[in-house]
Design a protein around this nucleic acid. Structure first.
Length: 280
DNA sequence: TGAAGTCAAGGCGCG
DNA sequence: CGCGCCTTGACTTCA
């Protein structure tokens, strides 16, 4: 059972999302910030190893401004050796790593330039995972509706098919809390071959006709879940809701899922959950 | 050293 | 039609 947390570890005060403002961009600034992210990533992985936490989401600012037009730093050559070393450790210890670029990646935009920049963003994510020589998924949402959902879905599929293979092979799509529910995502995944990440909390706020049991049976051995509880407005919980988690866990445990905690206190809730499971 | 102001980006929905 | 929301709140400047 893989349970993990995203980007940051508050216990040891380490983040894979150190960044800077665009106005202070320089090669030196990129160099020292990426180095910091690498160093912090090592510390987080060592923490995770100690506590047997095998799942982690790498921050999307790991290489700050990597897809921006002004970016002209050859980070691949500069950090190749260090990234290979990291990757070796990740493979040896069988960590599972995902990434989740944010709301600015919109593959079904009507604006070609937005799509172009989205693809550039996805490409550096893929390059990073490739340089580490690890498996690992890049999860995104479908995007907007733009007054016509069928057309928006078609645009997504067209963009998906135009992606370079290095991105396509790692791309996972996830149901969101307002526009594209699990049923939408499943249809798109079936016609593209994209991986799926299932967000249980979004599904609670924006459900489809599929029951949780049906969803689990469809995804079964490829079950990657974003888990959170929270209020009905979609705000992620500050800390784990023990009752909610145990109920959820009893439903999914037989599927051997990978569960990413989208809970604000991060590793703390993961450790609580692991204790709960152990003493259950 | 702490507080205030600012930060690359898209799209939706509320008021 | 402007603004807040999404998120990991964090960087930078100014006292």
């Amino acid at each position: 059972m893989y349970i993990g947390y995203p980007c940051v570890n508050y216990t040891i005060k380490r983040s894979t999302n150190n960044t800077f403002k665009l106005s202070s961009y320089s090669h030196q600034k990129v160099r020292e910030t990426v180095q910091k992210n690498i160093d912090h990533f090592w510390d987080i992985l060592k923490f995770n190893l100690r506590y047997d936490i095998k799942f982690f989401r790498l921050g999307s600012q790991f290489i700050p401004f990597a897809s921006h037009d002004i970016f002209d730093f050859n980070w691949q050559d500069e950090f190749r050796d260090q990234l290979e070393e990291l990757g070796e450790f990740i493979r040896e210890q069988e960590f599972f790593i995902t990434m989740h670029p944010g709301q600015y990646v919109v593959l079904n935009s009507k604006n070609q330039d937005v799509i172009r920049r989205s693809i550039r963003e996805l490409e550096w994510h893929a390059d990073l995972l490739d340089l580490m020589k690890i498996e690992g998924l890049i999860q995104i949402h479908i995007g907007g509706i733009f007054d016509n959902k069928a057309e928006a879905i078609n645009r997504f599929i067209n963009s998906y098919n135009s992606l370079p293979y290095k991105v396509r092979r790692r791309l996972a799509i996830e149901n969101d809390d307002r526009l594209y529910n699990f049923e939408d995502v499943l249809k798109i995944a079936r016609s593209t071959g994209a991986h799926i990440v299932f967000d249980v909390y979004h599904d609670r706020i924006n459900p489809s006709n599929y029951s949780l049991q049906e969803i689990l049976d469809i995804l079964k051995d490829n079950l990657i879940i974003d888990y959170s509880s929270g209020d009905d407005r979609g705000r992620h919980a500050d800390t784990i809701d023990v009752h909610d988690f145990l109920q959820f866990y009893r439903n999914v445990e037989e599927y051997n899922p990978k569960i990413m905690f989208e809970i604000k206190d991060k590793e703390k809730s993961v450790l609580t959950a692991k204790d709960l499971i152990k003493t259950k």
